[in-house]
Simulated assay, not measured.
Amino acid sequence: MANEYTNDINIKNTISLRDILAELPSYVKVVFRGIENKASSRTRLGYAIDIKTFYNFLCSECPQFRGRKPIDITLDDISRLEAEDIEEYLEYLKYYEKNGKIYTNGEQAIKRKLSALRVFYAYLYKNNRISSNPAEKVDMPKIHGKTITRLDINEIADFLDAVEYGDHLTEHQQAYHAKTKVRDLAILTLMLGTGIRVSECVGIDLNDVDFNNGRVKVTRKGGYESYVYFGDEVTAALTDYFEERKHIEPVSGHENALFLSSQRKRMSVRSVEMLVKKYSEGVIPMKHITPHKLRSTYGTELYRETGDIYLVADVLGHSDVNTTRKHYADMDEDRRRSVRNRVQLREKRDN
């Protein structure tokens, strides 16, 4: 059963989804009801935002729809679109202007928006609402690999030292550091020591932590719950924070939250992102460190220690091991390179 935090997020996502669908034709709502049990509220909201962007493109850029509103576009209109129209949309996404603001989309964003269109068209086609599926004919954009940023061993130590002792913080930051350092160290040690996502971290409740078995229950992407195990360093950091947490009176409605903000409310994803930025900028200025980089750091170290990509995928909560393999392919290359002289073809002779 989803915890309080997850339920709150689902409600907010559902409200936002309804607001978007109110601006789109009724058959779009049918599609989203149809995929409700197959996608999380976050995924459905993302799809809705992307579908709305597509309809806005049709109304602003396509001559046959110009002057109309998204809600006026019929199923017949959608069924008459061809693959070429969708390809034009993908080209448009790279750079466009709306209400005086410039928007750009990289390869990943364009791929995501095409994925949303494919889900949309596939549902309509499968349920005999349209006679053809042009989105299926459009190739997914090729994603060019990027170097994965991670913390090196010495950088992990410097980062956690900054959290614990306030190294490299500004005077203004130092003034608040003593009040939050125990909490901050618990959060960031937990993330570095388990590889959990920032959304999973802020969603943890007090009773989700099981010190007897060295594990914490988190709600993964997709809404399912899973136990993640932690070691002695995480235990020590969490124990110190639990002692401090006993003396904090949370705001009503946030009593179950493990990590509390200065306002005594559940920490937000944005708050943790700002924590990571604050502590990393002074000690690792050459790298742009985010919560996801902490996750990548843990995955890297776990793979180095075990060499088991399936274990890493399971611990990180990846539904597809290929996602994990893609992120750690460079380490496979290192492993292959390291054994290049292990196989000896001929016995060496003494001259």
Rank of each mutant, 00 (worst) to 15 (best):
L58G: 01
M1K: 13
E36Y: 03
T323D: 02
K265T: 13
A157H: 11
P291A: 04
F242P: 00
G34S: 06
T290Y: 08
R264C: 09
F32I: 02
E61S: 13
R118D: 01
F211Q: 02
D77L: 13
L188A: 05
R183S: 08
Y176Q: 00
T14E: 14
Y298H: 02
V321L: 09
I86A: 00
H254E: 02
V315K: 04
M191K: 00
N99D: 13
L260Y: 02
E255C: 06
N341G: 10
G100I: 05
R183P: 04
R349A: 12
Y298D: 05
R342E: 15
V163G: 13
K29P: 04
F54H: 05
T219R: 00
F65V: 06
L21I: 06
T194G: 09
L345K: 15
I153R: 15
L192D: 06
H177G: 10
E171T: 12
R68P: 07
L311C: 04
A48L: 05
Y27D: 04
R80P: 02
I289V: 09
R129G: 02
I73C: 09
I289L: 04
T180I: 13
N213D: 00
L345G: 14
V251E: 07
Q174G: 00
D8C: 04
V198W: 01
H247W: 08
S60N: 11
V198S: 03
D167L: 07
L17W: 04
N341V: 09
A2C: 01
Y47H: 05
D232C: 10
E61A: 07
E107N: 12
I35D: 06
A237C: 06
I110A: 12
Y165D: 01
A157E: 15
Y310D: 07
E255F: 07
L258M: 13
V321E: 01
S226I: 00
M286A: 13
V234P: 04
D320E: 07
I35L: 07
S280D: 06
V202A: 08
V339P: 12
R349E: 12
V343T: 10
E200L: 03
Y96S: 07
V339K: 11
H177R: 09
T6P: 04
S262Q: 10
N322A: 06
E243P: 06
L151E: 00
N213R: 08
A178M: 06
G34D: 03
N127A: 06
N341E: 13
R44Y: 08
D320M: 07
N99P: 08
E244W: 03
P70C: 09
D330H: 15
P250Q: 07
E171F: 11
R42Y: 10
E333K: 15
D72W: 10
I86K: 03
N322Y: 05
L124Q: 01
V202I: 11
R197D: 02
G34L: 04
A39L: 10
S132N: 14
L169R: 09
I248L: 10
E225W: 01
Q174V: 14
R336D: 12
L185F: 14
G317C: 01
A175R: 14
M286N: 15
L17Q: 00
S226Y: 05
A109R: 09
L302M: 13
I49P: 01
K287G: 11
A2Y: 03
D350H: 15
E347H: 11
V119K: 00
A157R: 15
T324M: 05
D332R: 10
L169K: 06
K94R: 14
G223E: 04
L294E: 01
A237M: 07
K126T: 12
K287P: 04
D72G: 05
I289K: 00
A236V: 13
D232P: 08
